[in-house]
Design a protein around this nucleic acid. Sequence first.
DNA 1: GACGTAAATTTGTGATCACATATCTGGAAT
DNA 2: ATTCCAGATATGTGATCACAAATTTACGTC
Lengths: 244, 244
Amino acid sequence: MKNKKPLPPLPSVARDSLADQVYRHLRDGVMAGRFAPGQRLTIRGLADALGSSPMPVREALRRLQAEGAFEFSDTARLSVVQLSGAQLRDVRDARVALEGLLAERAAIRITGVDDTEIAQLYDRLQAAADAVDVPGYLSANFAFHRRIYEIAQAPIILGAVEKFWVLIGPCFVLVAPDAAHLRRSMDAHRRILDALMHRDGPAARAAVTDDIMQAANCLSRVIDKPEKKRSVATPKGKSRNASA
Amino acid sequence: MKNKKPLPPLPSVARDSLADQVYRHLRDGVMAGRFAPGQRLTIRGLADALGSSPMPVREALRRLQAEGAFEFSDTARLSVVQLSGAQLRDVRDARVALEGLLAERAAIRITGVDDTEIAQLYDRLQAAADAVDVPGYLSANFAFHRRIYEIAQAPIILGAVEKFWVLIGPCFVLVAPDAAHLRRSMDAHRRILDALMHRDGPAARAAVTDDIMQAANCLSRVIDKPEKKRSVATPKGKSRNASA
DNA sequence: GACGTAAATTTGTGATCACATATCTGGAAT
DNA sequence: ATTCCAGATATGTGATCACAAATTTACGTC
């Protein structure tokens, strides 16, 4: 469904190009684990699925490539990045360093008006954990962390952190909904919440560190296991793509 | 000078698209301080200067926008990102966290074959400091740090660090060649070198931290001083660009 | 029937065109 | 002389086309 109209009703106040919309759409999809590691995609296929020309998709993919979400292989074929175990440990260490910094700063700068909002996001996270909806849990999890880090008022650092989230998003499609992990993760989240409410910076950093290590351990049990029936490449072979 | 020939001699083994070349060219230019903060650029102007069509430049700029080097303003005008003092402090803190991690890890994994190479880069840095060539010093400085961090064998973290370097590159055009700063900086570099040679991780982290804090202090004396004759926008007004 | 080679399709890359909007230029009115 | 508005130019965005390389498919040969 190509839109022949050259976007007539654009209020011009939004300043939101088609490429930007495609970018956010794909980025959210990656973070929510809707793309499998190593999955092959095509520019034209995504463009058809999104109802646009290949051009905005190309620009969005360039940005996502710069962030490490997708890669153009040696033969210039597009695919979702597949992190190795070592790379996953690197992401873990970098997250601990950066998110620990943000959590500590957030515990200092948080005010009463933020408390209720954080608590609401925590409840939404808890709800997604009770139902074992993994994509929903991932989205709620990132929203919870993001809101906390926004309080730290360091958007540049938060941007770097989100780039790491984009990297680990696809890995989560490999891990089956693990109730035990979700319970441990929610325990860490509870401690993050408590630390923030008590304005305890070091405790917030420690809780965030535990949460990150928890997730990394969960992933490391699945990644780099050489053969464990991980046939999560292109499901069929046709240039399809998962974009809800 | 548009190249009408559809790139005939491409060995096809390089897998290096025109957009990639433009990307690296602009990225190196930004890191070396060849673009002024807030400087306005145009896609067509850069394309003409580089002798290509606007298309590869667009893709390269998209990547660099994703990395935060350039921004498309609310009115979709392209300009070099101008960091505020608060953002500069954020970059400083993130660099301390990440580069400290890499330095500590490098001190552990470094081997004898790396020693000579690091020493050579240090000498090149010293030479650029003796002559007060700021762009040359910046390039040598980033090369020195990059080589060290490569030893840490954490390419994902190094990639995040380089994104921060791209952000602070333009800021350095604001600081005049300061011999005192160069001396203090070289002192920190000497301590980094010594720590690496002694395989002392904590000392390497401390030296890198000092180096980063040093540079941040130097920059903070220039940034956010409301009016100090910083007329470093577009020098003339014509859509020119500094691309050597 | 298996394997290798060539045709056909797919796909990323780059160029060119069209268009809406922002920016600049010029002159006219106060 | 200054201000303000209309025409002209410049610029980012998106679409379409062309092309080379890679992948897939088909067919002929052993």
